[in-house]
Simulated scan of single mutants.
Amino acid sequence: MPVLETRGVTVRFGGNTALLDVGLTVEPGRVTGLIGPNGAGKTTMFNCITGMQPVASGSILFEGEDITGLGPGRRARMGMARTFQRLELFLSLSVRDNVRVAGDIVRANTRRRIDVEAETDRVLELAGLADIADENVAAIPTGRARVVEVARALMTRPRLLLLDEPASGQTEHESERFAELLRGLAGDGIAVCLVEHDLPLVMSLCSTVHVLDHGTLIASGTAAEVRRSPEVIAAYIGTETVA
């Protein structure tokens, strides 16, 4: 069973259709890509999935349960976590405290028992951030700040992890380490959905890729299938070669 399934999701802003009849799935234990040109509707889709944007029609299922009418907080407690296209960090806090705050929230708002200190140390090590744990987050490079956001999301122990352009600002080395992190998370059974413009990263990492253009799903398939799609080449990839 997919962790996430959307059926016929449509969103309108006034007279503009942002998403039209979008259906996609995200499987457990895999990294799934959601790509497309700027303005294609990728972030709007994430907002619908997480309950931040109501849909005009269609439905969203999480582990087989229709959650279309549930709010963001309820969806988060069910096992969703996300990052944002724009960095959303507490700039006056250290890396450690940015990660720890999510654990404090989980402990305060759920019945889950969590050793916040131990879990923070575990996640920092997992994400490769232990060496900068005590640095102020405002002083670290953008590429690693992106990973801090991912680490904070991991503190909630999500079953679905939605990442909006997490590799933006990363160096080649940071991107390689980040890809290994995501492979490891998928290997642990987490369903990862990745919005990303780094096509080589997407094509090497994702087992399934969904492609949006002007709010419409124009292709879904393996990375190889999507890369060869005439519709995708015309709308997004163009004539560039994607390794």
Rank of each mutant, 00 (worst) to 15 (best):
E5L: 05
R7D: 15
R7W: 13
G8R: 01
G14S: 02
G14T: 10
G15V: 14
T17F: 00
A18T: 08
A18V: 12
L19C: 07
L19W: 04
L19T: 01
V22F: 09
P28M: 08
G29Y: 02
V31T: 02
T32G: 07
T32I: 07
G36R: 01
A40N: 03
A40F: 00
K42D: 08
G51C: 11
G51P: 08
Q53T: 15
S57G: 12
G58E: 12
I60L: 14
G64H: 13
G64N: 13
G69Y: 01
G69C: 04
G69F: 00
P72N: 11
R77V: 13
M78T: 08
M80S: 02
R82A: 10
R86L: 06
L91M: 12
L93C: 07
R96Q: 07
D97P: 03
D97E: 15
N98D: 09
D104P: 01
V106A: 05
V106I: 15
A108L: 11
R112E: 14
R112A: 15
I114H: 00
D121W: 12
R122Q: 08
R122C: 06
A127M: 13
G128H: 09
G128E: 10
D131F: 07
D134F: 06
D134T: 06
D134V: 06
E135A: 14
E135C: 14
E135Q: 14
V137C: 12
A138W: 00
I140L: 09
T142E: 13
V148G: 09
E149N: 09
V150Q: 04
V150A: 10
A151V: 03
L154G: 03
T156S: 14
T156M: 13
P158S: 03
E165A: 13
P166N: 07
P166F: 08
P166E: 10
S175D: 02
R177T: 01
L181V: 00
L181F: 08
G184E: 15
L185V: 00
G187R: 05
I190S: 03
L194V: 02
V195R: 01
H197N: 07
H197M: 07
D198N: 15
P200V: 14
L205T: 03
L205Y: 04
T208C: 12
V211R: 01
L212I: 04
L212F: 09
D213S: 14
G215D: 03
L217K: 12
A219T: 03
G221S: 11
T222F: 10
E225H: 05
V232I: 11
V232M: 09
I233C: 06
A234L: 00
A235V: 04
I237M: 03
G238S: 06
A243H: 06
